[in-house]
Design a protein around this nucleic acid. Structure first.
Length: 282
DNA sequence: TCACCTACGATCAGACTCAG
DNA sequence: CTGAGTCTGATCGTAGGTGA
């Protein structure tokens, strides 16, 4: 039994619940660990208490003994993911991705009803709740790999753990936290708008031609663009002399109906292949 | 209360600005 | 002059802020 266990542990190496990253001398917690922590905090939170994002962050900080203020955004996303996986009043019984957590079954009264962030969910439409149909298992929640056909063949599993890159960025962010470079003169702090599940993150239908490229029948627009660029890079479809130009292969030609386009026109052409999903009944 | 406006995410190379 | 950093352009739907 134990041998089988250790074999399985070798096959699934990245399961340590406390996976810390050392970066430039600082001990940081991985996104994986944060996701698990969020899950645990939500499970343990008092159903009668109103839990805010800050509350979750603070509990996580206490739990891990680290400053997670710079990870608030990620934590919020994790909360949304967890809540989104089962917010419906009448959810399909075996729909939950986190089935191994009995606390998360059915209407998960432990945290959802009183959780402050559910304001996003109030506005969610049914089709948004089914984002990419069943959510992946929790270990895949925070980093979704691109479709297989888009992965770089030259660097199959040799990719460094995404954790490190993310933490590296965050490290920058933390070290300069007080003088964060404001991105593009955006709204003043505190009034930052939330993307939420709708808006740009709204899942749109993908035409059959485009499906051949992005590999999914429905994706958020941002994801579609990302996948499209991955496809372009993978297949070397940028004009070497002018990298703004996209040389269409057969699949792209079906989508764009041209042999050559540029990255700006591309988005316009892309719009024809993105279908707004109508709410089923509202 | 209503209508209007803005920012949000994602992508990229080239243009532009600024400092050394 | 060079290198580094920032902005631009396009597109989408919607939440939320602002002003009337």
């Amino acid at each position: 039994e134990r041998e089988r266990e250790s074999e399985r542990a070798e096959r699934e190496p990245f399961v340590s619940p406390f996976f810390l990253v050392i970066y430039e001398g600082n001990v940081m917690v991985s996104d994986q660990e944060i996701a698990k922590g969020v899950e645990a905090v939500l499970r343990q939170s008092d159903p009668n208490a109103v839990t805010s994002l800050n509350g979750v962050v603070q509990q996580l900080e206490a739990k891990l003994g680290l400053d997670l203020s710079h990870k608030a955004g990620f934590i919020r996303d994790q909360i949304n993911l967890l809540l989104r996986s089962h917010p419906q009043p009448h959810p399909p019984k075996d729909h939950f991705a986190i089935q191994h957590q009995p606390q998360f079954q059915n209407s998960h009264p432990q945290f959802s009803p009183h959780f402050a962030l559910q304001n996003h969910l109030h506005h969610q439409r049914p089709e948004e709740l089914n984002f990419r149909s069943p959510l992946p298992p929790p270990q895949q929640l925070q980093t979704q790999p691109p479709p297989l056909h888009l992965q770089q063949p030259s660097q199959p599993q040799a990719q460094p753990p995404p954790v490190i890159k993310v933490e590296a960025n965050d490290q920058n962010a933390t070290s300069n936290a007080s003088e964060m470079p404001k991105p593009k003169e955006s709204a003043p702090a505190g009034t930052k708008r939330r993307g939420g599940p709708g808006g740009l993150n709204k899942v749109c239908g993908v035409s059959t031609e485009l499906q051949a490229i992005v590999g999914e029948p429905a994706l958020p627009r941002t994801e579609i663009v990302k996948q499209l660029w991955a496809y372009i890079r993978k297949n070397n479809l940028q004009d070497p002399s002018n990298k703004r130009k996209i040389i269409c292969d057969d699949a792209l030609r079906l989508v764009f109906e041209t042999d050559c386009t540029d990255m700006f026109k591309m988005n316009k052409l892309l719009a024809k292949h993105i279908i707004t999903l109508e709410p089923t009944s509202m």
